[in-house]
Amino acid sequence: MSAKRAAFDLKNLTQWILPVAIIAIWQLLSSVGFIPERVLPSPAAVVLAGWKLLLSGELLTNMWVSFRRAIIGLVIGGGIGFSLGLANGLSRRSERVLDSTLQMVRNIPHLAMIPLVILWFGIDETAKIFLVAVGVFFPIYINTQHGIRNVDAQLVEMGHTYGMTPAELFWRVYLPGALPSIFVGLRYALGIMWLTLIVAETIAASSGIGYMAMQAREFLLVDIVVLSIVIYALLGKLADSLARLLERACLSWHPAFQRN
């Protein structure tokens, strides 16, 4: 058991070798003056900038603002996408009414709506939440519908022969059968969520990580700009890790998620 555990830890460590090496080389090149501070500050300088912003409270405030926009947008857009995906996956009639319209709207890049969104909502919270919601809607909608549609028809027939009610059929057959596909949609949506937020906050915002980066650019504070990018990367990684953890917990029956 302990040998197995040690091997597992070692495997876990392996994935950190490359990032740590890159940061070490970056620091080395900055320290010897090969990379000018104006172009790219050293990792130490970025950490220092982060520490200062942390102490002033500015960092946490902006992170909280961005996080809040991301989550609210995800819940609204994802919730609507999930509901419509279920409806159109389960009912052919609902699909006939809604699907072709939704597919047309899908072909509009949602970031192209930024000028319109600014006209509609100004640059307050609603604008950012709206854009995030539109962005996460489609991956969740499409993957939920696809997941429901692809539930094994033989299992559904089995459920019928054993007298399952429509509710039981949904909870015991359709939903668990669609879950792997829904998780694919969720992870894809999380990527789009951060991307949308970065763009929206950079263009039109008065708070948040993107706003912090744009303000720093005005004053040529390259270390804060780099810090903002790193924070986006970390938040993205964190969201994806949480989704994977949830996926692993919910899909433990799936051969792809079974250990050994």
């Binding site: 089995m158 022969t161 059968g177 879950l179 029956w253």
Partner: peptide
């Protein structure tokens, strides 16, 4: 009468997300 007549198919048609016991319990029907 679904509870008196049962059918077994060529494929097992077990719910992959339910344990062996839970799959058998599906057969209790009503």
């Amino acid at each position: 009468d679904r509870d008196q007549v049962r059918v077994m198919f060529q494929e097992p048609r077990l719910l992959p997300w339910a344990s062996v016991l839970a799959n058998v319990e599906v057969g209790l029907g009503a």
